[in-house]
């Protein structure tokens, strides 16, 4: 076992329903767009001719802004039979800038889905603690809705969200929907004025508020890697099995299928073996070492 879920491993030459090269993006049209924050936008896209294979929560696509370039972006929609895919993009460079400045009706290219997933399609009876920092909520969105829609009477699902400031919190409307579905949502920020009614402090401080049975709890973590380390440590202190903690990592993903080696982290290629890994024993030590 080298990754969180090997069932979704992508093999060369098998990445698209069209059986074309995995390097050729399929054309998708932007059908809706929502500006989440000053530099983050969410787009929904639909296929124009041929669609990518069904995806699972936690996987990513390579999105092409034509004539600009390609970038790896997590899938944020809940896996359904619908062809519509949601991506949330932060404006941090030329490609992401072009993507979030595209208009409804514009075409983009899509390759994928790639990588491992959160394993939330059949969550069993475990409680969940889902911890997201900043735009780290985007790769978790599909998984949280999957869990919320299967919440039942026994399972407790906690969503802990950390952000720099209240105006940097994404999916605000989604969080109110999740609360209606029975998810306990806790938000904290680093900086706020007295108009803010949530918590102020590190996201790890929210763990004390969450209600879960540590002996039967799974944790999903995504966000800055420093946050992931501190949060994993605190969750383990709370009694959660380190092997029940899944984390999503981000590196320079270029080919998406484990060929180019740009996304290497220790013995792993994040695009192929990840992005979702079990915390222990897989990545625990790698995140506190300088990469060479």
């Amino acid at each position: 076992m080298t990754s969180a879920n090997q069932t979704s491993e992508i093999e060369y030459g098998n990445a698209g329903e069209t059986e074309e090269s995995p390097f050729v993006p399929l054309p998708y049209k932007i059908v809706s767009k929502h500006k989440d924050t000053q530099d983050i936008a969410t787009i929904a896209i639909e296929p124009v001719e041929g669609s990518i294979k069904p995806y699972k929560s936690g996987q990513f696509n390579m999105l092409t802004a034509y004539r600009v370039g390609e970038v790896a972006i997590s899938i944020s929609s809940e896996p359904t039979s619908a062809k519509r895919i949601v991506h949330t993009i932060r404006d941090v460079g030329a490609v992401s800038h072009a993507l979030i400045n595209s208009e409804i009706g514009d075409m983009i290219g899509v390759r994928g889905p790639f990588g491992t997933d959160w394993q939330t399609s059949d969550p069993g009876d475990a409680d969940y603690v889902v911890v997201a920092g900043g735009i780290g909520l985007a790769p978790l969105r599909g998984a949280i809705f999957e869990l919320a829609n299967q919440i039942g009477k026994k399972r407790k699902v906690n969503l802990l969200v950390g952000a720099r400031s209240p105006d940097q919190i994404i999916y605000v409307a989604d969080m109110r929907r999740l609360e209606q579905l029975g998810v306990k949502v806790y938000e904290t920020v680093d900086i706020a004025d007295s108009n803010w009614r949530g918590s102020v402090g590190l996201v790890t401080e929210l763990i004390d508020k969450a209600v879960f049975d540590p002996s039967n709890t799974k944790a999903l973590l995504c966000g800055p890697e420093i946050m992931i380390r501190f949060t994993a440590r605190k969750l383990i202190e709370s009694g959660i099995d380190p092997q029940s903690i899944l984390v999503s990592l981000e590196r320079n993903m270029q080919c998406g299928i484990g060929l180019c080696g740009h996304c290497q982290l220790g013995p792993y290629l994040i695009c192929r073996d990840g992005p979702v890994f079990t915390w222990a024993p897989l990545v625990k030590d790698l995140l506190s070492q300088k990469e060479r």
Partner: peptide, 21 residues
């Protein structure tokens, strides 16, 4: 420790990596 971590501004913007860089 929490104050020190918050001082790191961990949610700050990271750079996009362009293929070929």
């Amino acid at each position: 420790q929490a104050t020190r971590t918050r001082m790191l501004d961990i949610y700050g913007v990271t750079k996009e990596v362009i293929p070929g860089d």
